[in-house]
Simulated assay, not measured.
Amino acid sequence: MPGAEQLAIAWRWLGWELAAIGRGVRSAVRESGPERDTMVQSLKAAAAAILAWALTGWWLQAPLALMAPWTALVLVNATVYRSLHSGVQQFAVIVAGALWASAAMAITGGSTLLAMLIAIPVTVLVGTYRRFGTQGIYGATTALFVITYGAYSLTEVGHRLLETLIGGVIGVTVNALVLPPVHLRNVRDQLQRLSRESADLLDTMAEGLRGEWSESDAAGWHDRARRLDQVLRGLADARQWTHESSRFNPGSRLRRSVPPPPLEADAVWERTVGHLTAITRVLGGTAGEKARLTAPGTEFLTRYADLAAQSARLCEADRDLMQQPRSTKEERDRQNRAWKEAWAVYDALAADFRRQTGPAAEVSGGLLVETKLMLSGLTPQEMYEGDTTSTA
């Protein structure tokens, strides 16, 4: 039944989502990295908002104390520089929004609806100005606060701006002085995450292909491969944050750091993720009662599972190379061994593939082509080694 099928799909999606959340939580608890950084920044943002409310709402008894914690919350940003930059942008649009909304209320004699008709379209349009960046929308929301609260005298508007300023100062100060974010290691962390999650996915596929696997299993593998795109986006963000991290950041002077791996590493893993996604897509096409592709025989899939497992060992060796700025000879030798063993398994499987015929051979060939391209991209090289000169 269509309803039951949709429910099963939704249930599988929920399971994948919960599994992804669980992996993220375990990473945050067990090791330093982007997940833990996100957790720290979230707790800092909450603390800044509570502190801003305590100062303006509880101690100063401000009439609309919401402005202070709201501003503090959004200004605990990925870098100190970004907090300062966003703070200036946000204060500018809030001043503009508050003044224009007050003028609209004065013109309309305090009519909420007429003031909205005058103020909101203009503030939304002004908020799209590229110099305001993502902070532009706060001009319109501030206008809404002023109009719906009904306070539009110069004194009351001055209170709104003071509360905003207090919240901004608290947000930026908390971000700069409490575990200030230094992202100089984040590029390496994201690359490690790519290799670790790729290895886990390949191992899971290998285990499944050796036994009974279903359409649901294949869909789960494909979902995990597609989620690696999110890590690639995180890697791109980390590159940008690395550039910003040391600007106006007291924490950058307290931590010894080394330059991140060069950009070539990003390109390698972008291609690797693409090949993994293609492999899981092909396997998904062979599964289920309505399979679009003819599945290879059990013998081929069992041997391909060995290739997937050996590819996972290569990804793990690649991960170990990124754990330290300068790898050891033992780690490089391990990567070389894993690479040679993966190619040996591939060559043996490719030689047997030449005897295959029929529609299943097309699928087997597709899997081998994508795997060959993936292994070629993971050729041992010292792309993850940075200059050991300190930038502290």
Rank of each mutant, 00 (worst) to 15 (best):
A8S: 11
W11H: 03
W13K: 10
L14W: 10
L18D: 03
L18Q: 01
G33A: 00
V40Q: 08
K44V: 13
A46G: 09
A49W: 06
I50C: 09
W53Y: 15
W53T: 08
L55H: 00
G57Y: 08
G57I: 08
A65N: 01
P69M: 04
T71H: 07
L73I: 09
L73C: 05
S83Y: 04
Q90K: 14
Q90G: 07
F91C: 01
A92M: 02
V95N: 03
A96W: 06
L99P: 03
A101C: 02
S102T: 10
A104M: 13
I107T: 10
L117Y: 03
A119S: 14
V126D: 00
T134L: 08
T141W: 05
G150W: 08
Y152C: 02
L154K: 01
L154C: 01
V157P: 11
H159G: 07
R160E: 03
L162H: 02
T164P: 04
I166Q: 04
G168M: 14
G168F: 09
N175G: 04
A176I: 13
P180L: 05
P180F: 02
P181Y: 13
N186T: 09
V187C: 01
R188M: 06
Q190W: 07
Q192E: 13
L194W: 05
E197F: 11
S198I: 10
L202P: 07
D203S: 07
E207L: 13
R210P: 06
E212M: 04
E212K: 06
W213N: 07
G220P: 12
H222L: 14
R224L: 15
R227G: 13
R227V: 11
L228P: 13
G234R: 11
R239T: 12
V258E: 02
P261Y: 00
P261E: 02
E264S: 06
E264H: 09
V268P: 03
E270P: 06
R271T: 11
R271N: 06
T272S: 11
I279M: 15
V282S: 03
V282E: 04
E289R: 12
R292N: 05
A295L: 04
T298Q: 07
T298W: 00
E299K: 05
E299C: 02
F300K: 00
L301E: 04
D306L: 03
A308R: 11
L314M: 11
C315I: 02
D318F: 03
D320W: 05
L321E: 09
M322W: 01
Q323V: 08
P325H: 00
R326K: 00
S327N: 02
E330W: 07
E330R: 14
R332F: 10
R332D: 01
D333W: 04
D333I: 03
K340S: 08
E341D: 15
Y346I: 05
Y346D: 04
A348Q: 14
L349I: 02
A360G: 05
A361M: 14
V363S: 09
V369E: 05
V369F: 09
T371W: 04
T379E: 10
T379K: 11
G386K: 04
G386F: 01
T389W: 13
S390K: 00
S390G: 06
S390Y: 08
T391Y: 11
A392G: 07
